[in-house]
């Protein structure tokens, strides 16, 4: 057995062959069931802080692969964001909206409504969309070539109705 696993896009499999009757979609419940049970088990094994870090990291890898395989990075910024918005809706990930954008400093405030990870969750008092944070940062890094951080400042789980992310390029 290999010591590490390397993700490749084709590991997602050929769904038209693999799921001829059930199709390529599943329920949000199942997705969340997996994510939150992972969170449960991981936090007990390695601690909550470390778990969150790993979720962000995995999200970033997902964002990078999503950008490479689904998005067109040759588009100018406005059109790239328009396409990203469309794809996020098409894949039912969430409704992306921009509230503020400083294209020179590469600083943004984004919201994702009806977010796959958290919309409809009870109020935990803390944001839970760590995977999303990584996902957004990963997409922007792949598109711009610069490192990004994305911090969720509002979340359904903190009493908001949309997830709000502060996204910044990291200097250097």
């Amino acid at each position: 057995m290999e010591k590490v696993y390397n993700f490749k896009w084709d590991h997602l499999g050929d769904l038209s062959v693999g799921r001829p009757n059930l199709g390529k979609e599943t329920s949000v419940m199942v997705y969340r069931l997996m994510q939150y049970t992972f969170k449960d088990v991981f936090s007990k094994e390695i601690g909550k802080q470390k778990t969150i870090e790993l979720f962000v990291k995995a999200g970033a890898l997902a964002g990078k692969e999503f950008c490479r395989n689904v998005l067109d990075i040759s588009l100018p910024f406005d059109e790239f964001i328009a396409e990203l918005k469309e794809k996020l809706v098409a894949f039912k990930i969430g409704i992306l909206r921009i509230e503020e954008a400083d294209k020179k400093k590469l600083q943004f405030v984004l919201t994702v409504s009806e977010d796959l990870d958290c919309s409809g969750l009870p109020i935990f008092g803390e944001s839970v969309c760590n995977y999303d944070e990584g996902f957004i940062a990963g997409i922007l890094k792949e598109y711009t070539g610069k490192k990004f951080t994305a911090k969720e400042i509002d979340c359904w789980a903190t009493g908001d109705r949309t997830c709000r992310f502060e996204v910044k390029a990291i200097e250097g």
């Binding site: 921009i98 509002d154 908001d160 109705r161």
Partner: peptide
């Protein structure tokens, strides 16, 4: 409004939409 204000939640959704529309 404060995060735990349950009456303000739908308005927060509206606020997010309006903020985005302003940017658009």
């Amino acid at each position: 409004p404060s995060r735990t204000n349950i009456f303000a939640m739908p308005l927060k959704g509206l606020q997010a939409s309006l903020t985005h529309l302003t940017w658009q």
